[in-house]
Amino acid sequence: MRELLPLSMLGGLLGLDVVCFPQMMISRPLVGATVAGAFVGDTASGLLVGATLELIALATLPFGASRYPEWGSAAVVGGAIAAALHAEPAGTLTVGVLATLATAWVGGWTLVKLRVWNAWLARRKRGALEHGSRGAVVGLQLAGLTSDLVRAMILTAVAYGLILPVARAMVAVWSFDEHLSRAVTAGAASAVAAAAAWTIFHSARGARWYFAGGLLIGLMFLAMR
């Protein structure tokens, strides 16, 4: 567990990116899981988990005040677990994706709590804000940023610390074949991606034909391999 501290710092930074700073999408699962995999020593496993999760994440766009999974810290947890267990490939991808989804769910809940916390802080400073206090404005912003960073660091550390032993035990007795496990996980992820693509793009004129054309190209590419 020597990796716990650097991973929690990475999870903190990526968790911060989800909403607060700088929203450059380094928190997307494709990035988070791959970088976490590299931290633990197996970039390829991290990337595999990240790409599978990216398909799923297409369905969860961060619109306004809506509640959505917190992918940043969660992807770090999933990517790192998959990389840590790469010596036993069967089930590693599935367990990594599962760990991420569970952490992202809890992470979404912690984001809601953070917003409530920020509102409480803002209420306490209402008088100062109404009088145009520069210190209150800057202080609230820094308090919010720090709270989010700490939230994401704790979430990453706790989730990784709790899930890794369970994941290790699961992979040790995993009975399905590696390729079957990957196919089930990727198939489920592709369903979410295809449904998300339809939901997001179908209102654009002709989008279904563009999708069909793209699908044809993709399948032809696979057939020619």
Binding site: L58, F201, I217, F221
Partner: peptide, 23 residues
């Protein structure tokens, strides 16, 4: 949206293929 629809059609099967492996 149109470009993304086309790109989605290509990306989804290719991603699944790489994750699943040679089978």
């Amino acid at each position: 949206a149109r470009a993304s629809a086309a790109v989605a059609g290509i990306a989804i099967p290719l991603t699944v293929a790489r994750v699943v492996g040679p089978s």
